[in-house]
Write a protein that binds this DNA or RNA. Structure first.
Lengths: 197, 197, 197, 197
DNA sequence: AATGAATGAGCCTTCATTCAT
DNA sequence: AATGAATGAAGGCTCATTCAT
């Protein structure tokens, strides 16, 4: 006998994954409080008790999504540190590359991004960790001589995160601009400023 | 935050103002959903029905706070447009001045700021309006010759708001830095960038 | 000094009468529970405490209206008893006359009628009293020889009240027919029936 | 009225039916506004949320009861139309039969009757629909020759409903008289009137 | 692996009524 | 005669979570 007739989702992992996916979308769209367990399971064609088979409670599934996002973000931040032996002529290009990668991930995972950046109460933890990592990178990079010695790397790191956060919302998730364009814009601005000289 | 022992039945306007003040603090601290009307009135030494004497419902008082903040922000943005006849040597100084004013308001009204920037579901409306106003300013200012002709004013405006939003949270409200310092940092960064040239 | 400048309603009786009138209309339109003291006083341009200057509570003003109506109804019922020395040829005319009078009162006092007939929980008391009075009348009239000896006067009285109640609502208050017509119709029906003989 | 010790979690349909039954009784006894959801569920040995498992809200369960009654009433009215080939000698008997059926239903369902006739704000809709149906019947029956050509069928229909409504309350539900007697009384009165001729 | 049925806990809101002036 | 301000009391409804199968 093959597996036909098996109730859909009889594979627990599938049900779990489905719940995660649906929940991410609901949280992203409606926020934590307005998202009801009952709506999640309805969209996943499951019953409410099933939800508790896979997650301890509503908070737990939300945290799982938060963590998923946070871990990825840290990875990206780490990978974006500039190698010490770059030719100055490719510096901008290299920075753009790292940033673009990040933005492409965000664009491909809009629900997770919404949650991790805007909805999670602990969104600030994520951002704080990102800032720290980027500050470390910058300290290193300043030392290597890529940037001015007198920049306040903490403030620059904070600013970069602020910019990413804002543009992700207004340009990326709303599909106004492509990751590449946005990355270029950001890098241009932060490298050169807007003064006419 | 300010529950003096007011005589009951004294003055409607005072009760209303008190509720607004307490509510702002509660919303800022706990968010919209976790804030209970019952806690607000308790802290204001009033009964629950009294709340509904002054506000249609929980949503209404929250919106009033949102609006208060939004209107102020727009004012600041409008006032920050640079006059066309500035001496270039005072340009930075003048920009810092406007920004510092705004930051000082935010620092003095932390609850409202939390609400308007981070808690309100319509925080993005505020930011969008701010961006629009600043973009207009920038377009004007570029035209006058203060900044490079090739800057994407929309992106710069968005970036500025992102930076303000981020630094307000991480430096200003947490009292790590003074408005003046933050304003200087931001302006330095955006005017000159971080490249060493 | 004449009375100009005196606050309107400074005459207590006027305020009281106004409240009664407005209340009657509100009760008639919305029923007892949906009628709020606050709406009554608002329409009377008075404050809520003023209401309690004139009436013990919401129930009391309602009962006053109920009583007003009930007393009038009983009067009409009493006056409708037929004199013992009528000429048979004027019998119908005389009955119509009494009924028409009653209906004219109802038509002129639609709010009170609504309350007393349909809204009051004690509407049945009124009807019961009316039935009793009419039964007495009928017993007397049967005895005098105006009607068949074998009629169940209780049932006829009940029926008459039922008919009046129904036609008052569907024909009289909705202004479909005049009191005179309705009275004639009722009397025709009850005197002769609908059989073709 | 029927709180057997049902096993919890047994059967949704039973719970629903029980709620409907209990609610009917509560509404009949105390009216719509004084009936509390909390009392209904208490009598049904259920919790308050369970109520909302089966009914959208308090209004919905009331409307369901109203509809139940209205539909039945219309059925009875339709079934009471007289066949066109009756022998005149059995006419009265046949009319009584239809009316008695209706009254028996009312007597067996006193709660529903209270609600549909006296408590529902839309009681008048029911009565209006009944009147319409009966008027249709009468028009047809007059045409067949059962009744006088000059009767105002609208008024007779209204009167009949008024009588039924009144006697249902004062004689039937209070168990003063049997359906059969009441039906006979009504028919006698409407067919022949009370004049002595 | 899954669910029909049920509930504990809690919050918002409304209204009649009163206090103090 | 009148009212601005305030409240006690109560009821409807929602939601996350669990029991029993």
């Amino acid at each position: 006998m093959a597996e036909r007739g098996r109730p859909k989702g009889a594979n627990g992992e599938e049900s779990r994954a489905l719940l995660l996916e649906v929940a991410a979308n609901e949280f992203a769209q409606n926020g934590y409080h307005k998202t009801k367990v009952s709506s999640i399971v309805k969209r996943a064609s499951l019953s409410q008790p099933s939800f508790y088979l896979y997650f301890k409670n509503k908070e737990a599934i939300f945290e799982e999504l938060e963590d998923l996002f946070r871990l990825r973000m840290i990875e990206f931040a780490k990978k974006s540190r500039l190698e010490p032996d770059l030719q100055l002529s490719t510096l901008k290009e290299r920075i753009v590359y790292g940033l673009q990668n990040l933005l492409e991930y965000l664009a491909k995972n809009p629900d997770l991004t919404q949650i991790g950046f805007y909805i999670s109460t602990r969104a600030n933890e994520v951002k704080k960790q990102l800032v720290e990592q980027i500050k470390e990178n910058l300290d290193f990079e300043v030392n290597v001589g890529y940037f001015r010695k007198d920049v306040d790397t903490q403030m620059v790191a904070e600013s970069l995160i602020g910019i990413i956060e804002r543009l992700t919302f207004s340009q990326l998730l709303s599909q106004q601009k492509e990751p590449a364009q946005i990355a270029n814009n950001i890098v241009d601005l932060l490298l050169e400023g807007i003064l006419d000289n």
